[in-house]
């Protein structure tokens, strides 16, 4: 048991310390509720879809989230419902503009150290330097232009609005990376509850059977 706990503790400590090795990431509580995810879809379609693809998300999945087909049709264009959500920028255009392709984002929330916190911090880390050039604290070499306009927002109300939008986008990307997450927690609660009762009964039985020995 001791060893077990120590290993676990070690794993946690190392993974945490590793995640914020370079820059301190802002920690956020991800809202996994359906309204937040849906707001995230809309924000994503407004601000990110022009460049980024979601390879493993189909338009059909957006209908599954509760959007009506007419709404999805606006985003879908000429694609069918079971086509993946393709970014709108052609590859050669992206290569010409950025020198690289914008990565597909359906797994992004699980593909960087720091996960959701990284996404949020990255989107919010744009600033305008003294020379008027936009930079990013979290990913200084990033070729992505500030998509939410946080670097030019000075009003606190405006900044708060952008922060809320970024959080919604993270809610959506978190869902996109792991669409069965909530179902998993629900099943987990049932299984653990069931196992707890079963194991307690087994414990009582064990005590009783072993009591025969003396």
């Amino acid at each position: 048991m001791k060893k077990h706990l120590l290993t676990l503790a070690l794993c946690c400590v190392t993974s945490l310390s590793f995640a914020n090795e370079e820059v301190k990431l802002e920690k956020i509580q991800v809202d996994t509720s359906n309204p937040a995810v849906k707001r995230g879809v809309e924000a994503f379609m407004d601000s990110c879809h022009s460049c980024h693809t979601l390879k493993y998300i189909k338009y059909q999945d957006l209908v599954g989230l509760g959007f009506d087909k007419a709404k999805v049709k606006e985003w879908q264009g000429d694609w069918t419902l079971d086509a993946p959500v393709m970014g709108m920028m052609p590859d050669d255009g992206a290569m010409a503009a950025f020198g690289k392709l914008p990565p597909e984002l359906s797994l992004m929330a699980r593909a960087r150290d720091g996960g959701n916190n990284y996404l949020y911090s990255y989107l919010m880390a744009y600033y305008t330097g003294a020379d008027g050039v936009t930079g990013n604290h979290v990913f200084p070499a990033s070729k992505m232009p500030d998509p939410l306009g946080i670097s030019s927002a000075t009003e606190p109300a405006q900044r708060a609005e952008i922060a809320a939008k970024a959080k919604d986008i993270v809610s959506f990307l978190n869902w996109a990376a792991d669409p069965h997450e909530l179902e998993r927690y629900k099943l987990g609660t049932y299984i653990l509850g069931y196992l707890f009762v079963l194991t307690s009964l087994l414990f009582v039985m064990k005590k009783r059977i072993w009591a025969r020995l003396n």
């Binding site: 794993c11 593909a111 960087r112 990376a177 927690y185 987990g188 653990l192």
Partner: peptide, 14 residues
């Protein structure tokens, strides 16, 4: 069911 990604390296989702 609650922490399945704890031991999956983020880089393996690329």
């Amino acid at each position: 069911l609650f922490f399945p990604n704890l031991l999956i390296e983020p880089a393996n989702n690329i």
